[in-house]
Design a protein around this nucleic acid. Structure first.
Length: 350
DNA sequence: CACACTTA
DNA sequence: TAAGTGTGG
């Protein structure tokens, strides 16, 4: 589930976005896997059943991707999605851990359904949700039809996003996870792909969720550490490459330790008999120099209405009226915020 | 999560 | 205009 830096981010390093239009004209690289997974888990009936077409194929991820992307475009934000490639070898333990969680949740889901506990069923359905290759494939196809660029990462999407933002080809990365900060993304937007109101788990209370920007430079300044040291902190708390972290060390102690001992060598000496599934040096190296591709281009194109209709209405039984309305909004947003601004003089005279 | 519609 | 409800696929 990524690195949990939540309790370490000082208020001063965060900037709450009151209105998405504040990001007008900015290019944002969205972690596609993270976004799709969120839609897949969130867009469900009360008992946990996802949206499905007449052939029983799940469509929750497509619904979320479609409408949310249009929303983002209407606010003048230029989205690009990045998708994970082959997970690195050092992630094996985390992947196995997730598989186990899904498996257990799947059993509990069936049980909950049997005893008629709708709320529990929903929770376990969310936990057992798996994003398949087919779902990702469908999502890419839909993005193509919408004219939205997507990038295939070599390995970690968050690493690729960080690279693109670092190079200045985009303004920020967007994900619920903090990993892109460790990979060096200068700016991370959280809560971009979730709506304004969200139900607190297990409570019948709704809270306002607003997008927020975390600036890496400010974060490091406020914490008084370097990016390398932030990676050490993550290592102590737990990352995808050592999911259990170090026993007995939470965010607070981790930061203390890193500030006290400063170098990885000394930090490791301060926590003797700690075992790591992967050598810590190797994990640090991966965050500092992950495999990325330089072969990408960010280009927005005119949406192709008939292709969109083909995918959503014909293949997946979306309501034609709803899709038509949404495409109208999409085309309008494209013309207002994207085409006009990326047209050079050349296009004007042709 | 988001749309479409209702309610006040 | 804001918030509540039912439903989407």
């Amino acid at each position: 589930m990524g690195v949990n830096l939540k309790d370490l981010i000082p208020e001063e390093a965060k900037m709450v976005i009151e209105d998405l239009r504040m990001l007008r004209g900015r290019i944002v690289v969205i972690d596609g896997y993270n976004a799709l997974y969120q839609f897949l888990t969130a867009i469900r009936q009360p008992d946990g059943t996802p949206l499905m077409d007449s052939q029983g194929r799940i469509t929750s991820h497509l619904s979320g991707l479609f409408y949310r992307t249009i929303n983002i475009l209407e606010n003048g934000i230029k989205p690009a999605y990045v998708f994970d490639g082959k997970p690195p070898e050092i992630k094996a333990r985390e992947i196995e851990k997730r598989r186990k969680i899904r498996e257990d949740a799947s059993k509990k889901y069936e049980e909950a359904l049997r005893r008629g506990d709708v709320e529990a069923a929903r929770r376990y359905a969310m936990m057992s949700a798996k994003l398949t290759d087919e779902m990702v494939h469908d999502a890419k196809k839909l993005l193509d039809a919408m004219g939205i660029p997507w990038i295939q990462a070599v390995a970690e999407g968050e690493a690729q996003a960080a690279y693109i933002v670092g190079k200045g080809d985009a303004w920020a990365s967007a994900s619920q996870d903090y990993d892109s900060l460790l990979f060096g993304s200068p700016r991370l937007i959280r809560n971009l792909t979730i709506s304004g109101r969200r139900k607190l788990p297990r409570k019948n209370v709704y809270i306002e969720i607003k997008p927020e920007i975390i600036e890496l430079k400010k974060l490091l300044e406020k914490l008084g550490i370097t990016r390398e040291q932030l990676i050490y902190v993550a290592l102590l708390i737990g990352t995808d490459y050592n999911p259990d972290g170090v026993k007995g060390i939470g965010p607070k102690k981790a930061l203390q330790l890193v500030k006290a001992y400063k170098t990885l060598d000394k930090i490791l000496k301060a926590i003797p008999k700690t075992e790591f599934p992967v050598e810590p040096e190797k994990i640090v190296e991966y965050f500092l120099n992950p495999p990325v591709t330089t072969d990408y281009k960010l280009e927005w194109k005119e949406p192709d209405e008939s292709k969109i209709r083909e995918i959503l209405v014909e293949e997946h039984d979306f309501n034609p009226e709803r899709v038509k309305n949404a495409v109208e909004r999409l085309v309008k947003a494209y013309r207002e915020h994207i085409r006009s601004k990326q047209m050079g003089l050349e296009a004007w005279f042709s």
